[in-house]
Amino acid sequence: MTEFTLSFIVGHMNYWLFTLLMMTGLYIVVDKGNLVKKIVGLNMFQTAVFMLYISMGKVTGGTAPIFPTDMNIDPEAVYSNPLPHVLILTAIVVGIATTSLGLALIVRIREEYHTIEEALIQKIELEKATREIREFGETMGGPE
C-alpha cells in the first residue's frame, strides 16, 4: 500500500495535474455539441498526453539532451531522457495533420447538413430516415 507522504504527493503532482488537463479535454469532447469545439478539446487532450510523456523523461538536475558542439562530453553531465522527446516530436506533427483532416471533415459536414452542431445533424438524419421508411418501407418489407 502506498503511503501518502509529502514527497510522494509532490512527486506525483505532475501526473495528477496533467490528468486533470486531459480530463478537461475529454469533457469538452463528450459534452460540447459543436464539432470545432470537439476538435479543440481533442487537441487539449493530446497536448496533456504529450506533457505527461515529457514529464516522465525529465531527470532532476538534468539538461536538454544536446552534446557540446566539439563533442567533448563531460562524463558528469546529466541529460534528460531523449526518447520521449523523439516520440512526442513526431506525434505533434502527426497530430496537426490528423487535426486538419478532422477540420476538413467538418467543412464537408457543414456543406451537407448546413450546420456543425451534433444535435441538429442527428435531427436531420432522423428526419431523413423516417421519410425514407415512409416512402420505401413497403417495398423494402418494412412497416405498413
Binding site: G57, K58, A64, S80, P84, L89
Partner: peptide, 14 residues
C-alpha cells in the same frame, strides 16, 4: 522540462 525540440515544434505547429 528540457524538451527543447518538442517545445520548438509545439510553438510552430500549435
Amino acid at each position: 522540462l528540457d524538451a527543447v525540440d518538442v517545445a520548438f515544434t509545439e510553438a510552430a505547429v500549435g
